[in-house]
Design a protein around this nucleic acid. Structure first.
Lengths: 228, 228
DNA sequence: GTCTATAGCTCGATAGAC
DNA sequence: GTCTATCGAGCTATAGAC
């Protein structure tokens, strides 16, 4: 039952974007289900059996394709990082007014992380485990560095035109944006419950979004010359 | 072996600060070990056997005193929140210049969260589990609300004297401080590894500390009147 | 100390494409 | 016949519970 493959070939086709092979579709299916499972339950709480049950394949296939629970988690993590960095790369921050670029980047980061809570939660899970799995994902440095370059270019333009104050490290800009966007998702449940302030509420989130953008801009803005 | 209790009584003594009973010491011992275990391995990764082995008691005693793994985790969480709020309460923010109060609070939060990574990690673990355990810890609202009041008073003083701009919600001030302090601990491993920028390095941490304080202050500061 | 359930993982075998 | 992708069943260790 269920022999829905198209052609038996399609293995080492070096040219155009071909239809994914059955194996590729299986791997993708596993990856998506595993992303949800790990993000929901954490690394130790995630169950390979549960992942298998929600897939169109079996547990045996998961071990065949990803070797181990660790191997699967690493693949999930890599995939998640690639997701945000790929979208960031489409932002075209170089052709906007510097302050608008920062507004765009901070707003995008805030929205993306909210919409992709799985990404945020996977990063939390990985940090709980001291970043041990990321060690095996060497390629990720190249995936993540471009965002620093982009921030650097925007910041340099802003300093040149006098709208940004000098002396700030690009990594501090990126970290501030990330921290403010991350917290809304990472601490959503504890914060909402403790302060009776639902971070999931659209109105509250919209207000927070402007505060975050505002905070980042004020951090960068050149001080107005004193009157008098 | 090991019958080091002082007296067989000491159970319901309602007056002064007495020496803790043997039972209290056992509970405290378990709590400390469990805090480390849950913070290190996450909720599902934590092993009651492991906690028992590092305690001076047995697994049986843990279930006697805390009923279940969940019960133990809730006790650990409550204890951790109480820790930071109790220290915050000693800051005496009402008698400093408003900007200095904010500097003190932001600096304290940054330092405390770094020094008590266990607290940060427990909060992460609880959020991974959608804040489910916090529901059982009703008393925590009263523990956490005072910090909002304190921020409100400082902010109001600052607006009155003209150093802070009006229109900001105290919860946004607290959230911004928390987010910026939290991130350094919560994302320490992924961030350090991905950007080759060790957040554990004392020099890097000190620099980040000033950036965080600076960011919070600039968020609050009244705009300088334009020259001209 | 002992029970029961279940975790991660492995083995043997299979069906179809070359 | 070999290589790839897959499956059902079962192994060993250890979890939480009492």
């Amino acid at each position: 039952m269920g022999q829905d493959r198209k052609s038996g070939k399609g293995d080492t086709d070096g040219d155009a974007v071909r239809e994914p092979s059955q194996a590729e579709r299986t791997r993708q299916d596993i990856l998506e289900v595993a992303t949800r499972e790990f993000a929901e339950k954490g690394y130790s709480g995630a169950r390979i059996d549960e992942i298998a049950a929600l897939t169109s394949t079996t547990k045996r296939a998961i071990y065949y394709h990803y070797e181990s629970k660790q191997g699967l988690f690493i693949a999930v993590l890599e995939n998640a990082y690639r997701g945000i960095r790929a979208l960031e790369a489409t932002l075209d921050l170089d052709h906007l007014e510097p302050a608008d670029s920062i507004r765009t980047l901070a707003g995008f980061t805030f929205d993306y992380q909210w919409a992709h809570a799985d990404f945020v939660r996977l990063v939390m899970v990985e940090n709980i485990h001291h970043g041990a799995h990321l060690e095996a994902a060497v390629s990720l440095r190249n995936v993540n560095v471009p965002i620093l370059d982009a921030v650097h270019r925007v910041y340099a333009r802003g300093v040149a035109t006098g709208v940004f104050r000098p002396g700030i490290e690009p990594i501090d800009i990126h970290m501030t944006i990330s921290a403010l966007a991350f917290f809304n998702v990472s601490n959503r449940f504890t914060f909402s419950r403790i302060f009776d302030h639902d971070l999931g509420d659209p109105a509250i989130r919209a207000a927070r979004r402007s505060v975050v953008i505002d905070t980042v801009l004020r951090f960068l803005q050149a001080d107005a010359p004193a009157a008098g």
